[in-house]
Design a protein around this nucleic acid. Structure first.
Length: 637
RNA sequence: GCCGAUGUAGCUCAGCCGGUAGAGCAACUGAUUCGUAAUCAGUAGGUCACCAGUUCGAUUCUGGUCAUCGGCUCCA
């Protein structure tokens, strides 16, 4: 019986049923296979060796496409698993998927792998690639598959099969050379297709991502269609390292983390603090424009209050406690409690709502040692925090206003971001009805605003669901900055109310929200985002005066005085060095403008600005320069 | 917290099989007074993360602690 196959160019060809995808594609393309690593049969990705049984539409998966690369990398992970088992007999395999930019495979082995083992593993992988072994797919009944992997002592694979839903009766395995893996596929036709790969790092990873389980050893690697692309990627990684905020923080003298002071505690140097001041100053003004009131609570509050709020029961492990006059106090990990007390300080009318309390609140959280990371994950940080107390009717418009605020702020700094909706976690307080109400309030606001988002099941705060806005760091790790959390529970626990138009008491709803999130984290991401070359309005130093020789110092000093007087962040560099050297130093400090002062400038009473992108602006009047800087600050450039 | 790696001058790194340490850059001093990404010379700088142990002797070997890095779990 013949089947009809429709190809991408709309050509339709008949083949005998059971013709493989590869044969069909060859017949269509004229004996040579295009750069396809697999195909889609009726939208379903399958191997090139797949026998086509009925009428079908065939599309190619090019090795250069996202999907193709992902298949290639997944196949490389199998080759790596084979190599690891060849080099380290007894190593057990578990899972090995492709991921963004590469792949990994998790193993159990009696000895730890180190990067020094990579040479041996890569060498063996190259042999496997050279052998050009085909990837052979086989399907077998569950029971046989279990038996197969039991015989091979692959207990992780057995566990995976046993945990499959009951209606799955047949599983697929892939063989290449002597290696067998449980796998859905598809794979590249044979190992010889692999042209460029590299093992990158080794790390521990819990089996199935659960910290109660056995820790396995994960080897990360990457692969590309050709050597050039691999080299480009490795170069990119090197470049990314140069943007790392921890490195730039030191080079630009912004901050330090000091072992003597303690882990996860940031010490801001003058330039880092200036950057922080500029951000905070901008933010305060933006909040006042949007109807927020600035407030401030204490750093420690009695433990009983934390018990009342539920933090003691649900957040204690992350809190620090202290004792004052034989009374227990909790150091605040969040700013909400004081804000609740401010609300409660008098009777509120529905006419007062919404109330928006804003605080640059410094909080302490006990983070596990292994998670600390530069400015991005610390133990003390300051949130641009606000709590909005409003009527249920006001909820939607308040959420939308916050989402707009976030959008505006991100645009000022030029950030792209992803949005996630996080729902009720296991360890939480409040009624099902309230959670449902809160979650749908957030979800509706997103939908009303046409904001695309992903749902993050069970990732909400213990008191309410949240909308998270995530920024990416230079190594593509995502960090939550802005968040909006909807809370029906704390107003309940603190018995907040307002008098409605009907003269009755009603319960307000509370929104917790941050725009930049943690100022520390935001600065960390910001440093990487700008690669340390901050726009003029944020640069701790906006310009630096470079004298050509010592005799230009007196005039340069008068220029400096004028700039400082005008509110420009100017620095002097009057050292006895050649101009070229000073320019190089200023360039490495990424200062937006270097002002060269030589004979010409002294004579004409001007400055000669050179921007950090190398443009020479010639001699201009000092006032002209001042106005230019002010204009750029105004425009947030 | 877990797995692995690492910790030597301000920074980047050398330092073999145990005999108390070096380079480049930065810093400081002097000379030079110079026009758009590195002038020359000299000087100084280290409880080799910390604490034990083995040893005649430990930066080196062993154990512990602390910190950092890459992940995992967790999270702003």
């Amino acid at each position: 019986m013949d089947i009809k196959i429709l190809f991408p160019d709309s050509k339709e060809i008949s083949f005998p049923s059971g013709t493989t995808a590869a044969e069909a594609v060859k017949a269509w393309s004229g004996d040579t296979l295009p750069h396809w690593v697999a195909v889609k049969i009726n939208k379903q990705p399958v191997d090139l060796s797949y026998p086509i049984q009925g009428d079908a539409r065939v599309e190619g998966i090019d090795i250069a496409s996202t999907e193709g690369l992902s298949i290639l990398r997944h196949s490389i992970s199998h080759v790596m698993a084979q190599a690891v088992q060849d080099v380290f007999p007894g190593a057990k395999v578990s899972i090995g998927p492709s991921i963004e930019d590469g792949f990994y495979y998790d193993f159990e082995y009696k000895e730890p792998f180190t990067v020094d083992d990579f040479d041996k593993i890569e060498k063996r992988m190259k042999e496997i690639v050279a052998a050009d072994n085909p990837f052979i797919r086989e399907e077998l009944p569950r029971a046989s598959a279990v038996k197969l992997f039991e015989e091979r002592s692959e207990n992780y694979k057995v566990e995976l099969i046993n945990d499959l839903p009951e209606d799955i009766k047949v599983v697929s395995i892939y063989k290449q050379g002597g290696y067998i893996d449980l796998c859905r596929g598809p794979h590249i036709p044979s190992t010889g297709i692999i042209k460029a790969f590299k093992l990158l790092s080794v790390a521990g990873a819990y089996w199935r991502g659960n910290e109660k389980n056995q820790m396995l050893q994960r080897i990360y690697g990457t692969g590309f269609a050709n050597e050039n692309e691999l080299q480009d990627y490795l170069t990119l990684l090197e470049e990314a390292k140069k943007r790392d905020h921890r490195r730039l923080g030191r080079e630009l003298d912004l901050f330090q983390v000091n072992e003597e002071a303690g882990a996860g505690l940031i010490i801001f140097h003058p330039k880092g603090m200036m950057l922080r001041y500029l951000i905070e100053d901008w933010e305060k003004k933006e909040h006042l424009k949007r109807g927020y009131d600035m407030v401030m609570g204490p750093q420690i509050l009695k433990a009983d209050l934390w018990k009342k709020s539920g933090h003691f029961d649900h957040y204690r492990d992350n809190m620090y406690f202290t004792e004052v006059d034989e009374q227990d106090y909790g150091i605040k990990p969040m700013n909400c409690l004081s804000h609740m007390l401010i609300y409660k300080s008098k009777i509120r009318s529905y006419r007062d709502l919404p109330l928006r309390y804003f605080e640059l609140g410094t909080v302490h959280r006990h983070e596990k040692t292994g998670v600390l990371h530069g400015l991005l994950r610390v133990r003390q940080f300051t949130q641009d925090d606000a709590h909005i107390l409003c009527t249920p009717e006001q909820l939607n418009s308040e959420i939308i206003a916050i989402a707009d605020f976030v959008k505006y702020a991100m645009k000022i700094f030029g950030f792209e971001y992803e949005v996630e909706l996080s729902t009720r976690p296991e360890n939480s307080i409040g009624s099902d009805a309230d959670w449902e109400l809160a979650t749908s309030a957030l979800e509706n606001a997103l939908k009303d605003n046409n904001i695309s988002y992903e749902v993050n099941e069970g990732d909400g705060a213990f008191y309410g669901p949240k909308i998270d806005f995530k920024l990416k760091d230079v190594l593509k790790r995502k960090w939550q900055c802005a968040t909006i959390q909807c809370d029906f529970t704390l107003p309940e626990r603190f018995d907040l109310h307002y008098i409605g138009a009907d003269g009755e008491k009603h319960r307000p709803v509370m929104l917790h929200r941050v725009i930049l999130g943690s100022i520390e984290r935001f600065i960390g991401v910001l440093i990487e985002h700008y690669a340390g070359a901050f726009p003029v309005w944020l640069s701790p130093t906006q310009c630096i005066l470079l004298t050509v020789t010592d005799k230009h110092i007196p005039y340069a000093q008068t220029v400096h005085d004028r700039l400082i007087e005008a509110g420009i962040r100017s620095e002097r560099y009057f050292d006895n060095e050649k101009l070229g050297y000073k320019i190089r130093q200023a360039q490495m400090q990424k200062i937006p403008y270097m002002l060269v002062i030589g004979d010409k400038e002294v004579e004409a009473g001007t400055v000669a600005p050179r921007s950090r992108d190398g443009k020479n602006m010639g001699s201009i009047a000092v006032d002209e320069f001042i106005n230019m800087i002010k204009d750029q600050c105004e425009k947030k450039q």
